[in-house]
Design a binder for these strands. Structure first.
Length: 561
RNA sequence: GCGCUCAUAGCUCAACCGGAUAGAGCAACGGCCUUCUAAGCCGUAGGUUGCAGGUUCGAGUCCUGCUGGGCGCGCCA
């Protein structure tokens, strides 16, 4: 419908150009928006306002000329000029209703597009160090990252989900020492406990597994414990694998799976870090000072230069980061999105600067970043800070166990990434209309219930009958619902392009509201077969779009509540 | 102090590359189940979009300054 209007306006515009009313060289991006107020029709365009200046005419006068030049179409019932010069289009009922069979025919593919044209895009997210269970912040990253991937897949991209983890470094050494202390029977309260050691209860589980000689099969690691308390390297390997497996189980429970786990240690073992350093030196943006090697990141917008190689010979953390991203580039990802916590935002400038300094043609804005703000968890209005297992933070597993996967995913993905999120456990648990997840799922279940009723009444849905009588869907509530359904593809498109999964959640709220309104206003199971089947068709189309939308969020669509 | 980010109804949040009278839900109040799931619907009330300027036909949206919250600012990761 929207496309129809755009093409009609385009023809009108061409006519005005021929008549010399509008200069030939003006080509405004014609914008047609669904109206907020149904008194303004179904769609409105600001074309006349856009053309006013180049044409040197009053917007309302131009709008009139445009409408006169508009080709006749049976999809349009009425066109009006309103306000400062908006062109309001009232769609013919049967034209609006065409969306219903279109959705039913498209099924699961409704809302999908080929925009991405099969281009490769990589999304890196979660990327937690294997030093403990995933926390809520990781959960937010997992929800946003995975939904982004689903959105990109739905818009035709070839998506790779990647998880990068630091399995080398100081934090891992600390992990190994902590586990070793437990292996030797120490507790965090003992004086001999390692300084800054990990104190969570899970460390003891790792130690017990190690002493028992357990074998761990993580996604990419298979380690059998040496059970030797003095072999720190063996403890390290076991602990990393153990916690990787634990994180993996958390992610599976959350419905998130990765295509690639990338080990930081591989960058060292394959000499990629050293190679990157040599390239940076060759690029000419480095210098030696105070016994250290510096990268002149100020050449690329940083506020001060950064040390690459410390005077003790070790590299600072962002050097392997640059090496890692060079590797992504070399793997052919022209589009990369890094989803991470906003507490790491200072790495953005550094990594990009490092990539620029390579002087190998990487665009300055590459990679893309989506940064999410912190998550605060509350129960009974009070902040929850601790979990039994991790000690110092609330784990993702705690939330999944307590409020369920669907609600957890929905809540974590339903807010803009760059605003702080308060996760209200009571709200997420509540089986009531306070809870947005249930509100949407209930709409889906309601359609299913009507369909069951149709079956049990011996009046099964007949699509052929529905197709003949779609013009019967003429109640205001039905039209509003159909207009909403028709918008789904562009909502998906926009959410993907702007990297904002929460737009899908918002849309589903609106769609569910339109449906519930319709449900209460218009009875489906009426005696007249033509009316009944067209209404059933509208219900089925709604169910399909809710299902498709929930699937983009990774949330289930139950058939009954 | 510098940088990034956020600020919208009492609360939690929307507002689709700048569009018409800023929208939902919750909380409050009043209605609707002998009819398909009342986990729902309808109605009432609730706003100087943090403050002050600017850009223009038009600003919650873009620009500048300020105030307040979060995060970051190490030869830590």
């Amino acid at each position: 419908m929207k496309d129809t209007i755009i093409s009609l306006l385009n023809e009108a515009l061409a006519t005005l150009k021929r008549r010399g009313v509008v200069p030939e060289d003006t080509s405004p991006a014609i914008k047609v928006d669904p109206t907020k107020d149904k008194a303004h029709g179904d769609y409105a365009s600001n074309l006349a306002l856009m053309l006013a200046k180049p044409a040197g005419k009053q917007p309302r006068e131009l709008a009139e000329l445009l409408i006169d030049a508009l080709p006749k179409s049976d999809a349009v019932r009425k066109v009006e000029i309103a306000g400062p010069g908006f062109i309001n289009v009232f769609a013919a009922t049967d034209a609006v209703a065409r969306i219903v069979p279109a959705i039913l025919d498209a099924g699961d593919t409704f809302g999908r597009s080929l925009t991405g044209a099969g281009q490769k895009v990589q999304v890196e997210f979660v990327s937690a160090n294997p030093t403990g269970p995933l926390h809520v912040g990781h959960g937010r990253g997992a929800a946003i990252g995975d939904c982004l991937c689903r959105l990109l897949e739905a818009t035709g991209y070839d998506v790779t989900r990647e998880f990068y983890y630091n399995d080398a470094g100081a934090q891992i050494a600390n992990l190994a020492l902590s586990v070793q202390a437990r292996v030797k029977g120490l507790t965090p309260d003992d004086g001999a406990w390692p300084e800054d050691g990990y104190r969570g209860a899970y460390i003891n589980d790792v130690a017990l597994g190690y002493l028992a000689g357990d074998t761990v099969d993580a996604d990419d690691q298979h380690v059998t414990a040496a059970a030797d308390g003095d072999d720190l390297e063996a403890i390290r390997r076991f602990a990393v694998a153990y916690l990787r497996r634990e994180q993996d189980l958390d992610l599976k429970a959350f419905g998130v799976e990765f295509d690639v786990y990338f080990l930081e240690s591989s960058l060292y073992s394959e000499n990629k870090v050293e190679e990157t350093v040599q390239r940076l030196i060759a690029g000419g943006h480095t210098y030696e000072q105070d016994g250290a090697l510096w990268l002149r990141t100020t050449d690329f917008g940083d506020d001060k230069d950064r040390v690459m190689r410390k005077s003790d010979g070790a590299y600072t953390y962002f050097v392997p980061d640059v090496a890692y991203h060079l590797n992504k580039w070399q793997r052919g990802f022209k589009q990369v999105i890094d989803e991470q916590g906003a507490d790491h935002h200072s790495t953005v400038t550094r990594v990009r600067a490092g990539l620029q300094a390579l002087e190998i043609g990487i665009p300055s804005g590459w990679p893309d970043y989506v940064l999410h703000q912190m998550v605060l968890v509350t129960r009974s209005g009070v902040e929850v800070k601790l979990s039994k297992r991790a000690g110092s933070y609330v784990t993702l597993r705690d939330l999944i166990d307590e409020v369920g996967r669907d609600a957890t995913r929905y809540f974590l993905a339903a807010r803009r990434a760059d605003s702080q999120l308060t996760f209200d456990i009571d709200l997420a648990r509540s089986q009531s209309n306070d809870n947005p997840v249930y509100y949407v799922q209930y709409a889906h279940a309601r359609v299913c219930s009507v369909m069951r009723r149709a079956e049990s009444d011996g009046l099964p849905f007949d699509l052929a009958v529905a197709r003949e009588h779609l013009a019967l869907l003429e109640a205001d509530q039905e039209k509003a619902l159909m207009n909403r359904l028709a918008r789904f593809p562009e909502v998906v498109e926009h959410a993907a392009a702007s990297r904002e999964p929460q737009q899908i959640a918002q849309y589903l709220q609106d769609l569910a509201a339109d449906f519930h309104t319709c449900y209460n206003a218009v009875k489906v199971m009426v005696d007249d077969g033509a009316t009944r089947n067209s209404r059933l068709a509208l219900g089925l189309a709604t169910r399909q779009v809710i299902r498709n939308g929930l699937d983009l969020l990774g949330v289930g669509a139950p058939e009954e509540m």
